[in-house]
């Protein structure tokens, strides 16, 4: 009789283990929740069930308050103090001095003429990066989404192929490409197969000329494109097929269907993608930090790295200056987010 209950095949073993694990997890879950119930139910009797909403919000708000909102306000104060001390009570109030130091330039188009030239180099590097990375990525993501939206065999597979790098950590992405682009790496290897002159004299991709900037942009596109492709693909698939049928009855060419049906209907999604990509690109840091360390010189040093080094890592940290720089970065992000929310509200109301 007992024999019948015993798992016989591997499949049965696996499902038995799964059921066991599920029961265990449910047990832990219920135990934890019942334990919390003993504390929380008396509170409910005390405040009444309507005000329980505040209790449910409390942990979240506490974390937001302590680690986001309070630091945000503090950052504003920091940006108006100077000195190396970490604690605000030990710092001297200097008003807008830090902002004046940042803005002290004879000629804004030439970082060399600025008092804080590293900051302006970081700003210009970031602008160049944002322009090419966002531009290139949105175009690539759109092309990929359009191709994936066709009747393709194995669409699920190809879609996940483009998405895979999104999951990799920035550190891993930086390491992978640092290995590929190094002096004796595979890119130089392939070049050497094509032209023997590279065998004796490999290109220093991460050190020479504009190569580092080029690769930093390409790698960021490589790493993030899949995310935006997915969003665009969802946008494309929400366009009703009836419209294309109507178009072809009216004799529209493929180009005309794209120009007059796809593009206008995809515009809201495109804007969301554009703003999300901008918000991310402005904050570029970690994979570049691993890939080039900001070098050579300052050629791939961006704003977040400037803030990090100025405020945290330099021998004499200038926290006030770093805070002022992050206020600048914060206002840029504020504008982008505002646009995004505004667009979101607009598209919801339609």
């Amino acid at each position: 009789m007992m024999e019948a209950n015993r798992p016989r095949s591997i499949g049965e073993w696996i499902s038995a283990i799964r059921h066991g694990a599920e029961a265990l997890l449910i047990g832990i879950y219920s135990g934890l929740m019942i334990a919390l119930e003993i504390i929380i139910n008396p509170i409910q009797r005390w405040v009444g069930f309507r005000r329980m909403a505040y209790l449910f919000l409390l942990p979240n708000m506490a974390i937001f308050g302590i680690f986001v909102i309070f630091p945000m306000l503090l950052n504003f104060y920091y940006s108006m103090t100077s000195g190396v001390a970490l604690f605000p009570e030990d710092r001297t109030f200097v008003g807008t001095d830090n902002y004046e130091i940042l803005a002290d330039c004879d000629d804004f188009t030439d970082p060399n003429s600025c008092d804080e030239d590293f900051f302006w180099r970081a700003v210009y590097n970031t602008i160049v990066f944002v322009f090419f990375q966002v531009g290139g990525m949105v175009i690539m993501a759109l092309i990929t989404a359009l191709v994936l939206n066709r009747e393709i065999v194995g669409r699920g597979f190809f879609r996940s192929v483009y998405f895979y790098p999104v999951l990799l950590s920035p550190v891993v992405v930086g390491l992978i490409w640092r290995w590929i682009l190094q002096r004796y790496g595979v890119v130089n290897g392939v070049l050497a197969q094509i032209d023997p002159k590279y065998e004796a004299d490999p290109v220093l991709f991460l050190l020479k000329g504009d190569w580092p900037t080029f690769w930093v942009i390409m790698i960021s596109i490589w790493a993030q494109m899949g995310f935006f492709t997915l969003i665009l693909l969802a946008g494309l698939q929400s366009i009703p097929g009836v419209l294309y049928e109507a178009g072809s009855i009216d004799g529209a060419s493929p180009w005309q269907s794209f120009r007059f049906i796809t593009l206008p209907l995809l515009m809201p999604t495109m804007f969301v993608v554009l703003v999300l990509a901008l918000i991310r690109a402005v904050q570029v840091f970690d994979q570049v930090f691993v890939l080039t360390g900001g070098g050579p010189g300052t050629s791939t040093k961006y704003m977040v790295q400037y803030i990090y080094e100025t405020g945290m890592r330099n021998q004499i940290p200038r926290r006030g200056l770093a805070a002022a720089a992050s206020m600048v970065l914060g206002s840029v992000l504020f504008i982008f987010t505002f646009i995004q929310l505004w667009l979101g509200r607009k598209s919801e109301s339609v």
Binding site: I69, P71, M72, N75, G311, G330, L333, F336
Partner: peptide, 16 residues
């Protein structure tokens, strides 16, 4: 808080 990534409040968060 959506628009305040860690990179913007680096210094004060370190203080907290």
């Amino acid at each position: 808080t959506l628009m305040i990534p860690i990179s913007v409040i680096l210094v004060p968060v370190f203080l907290v």
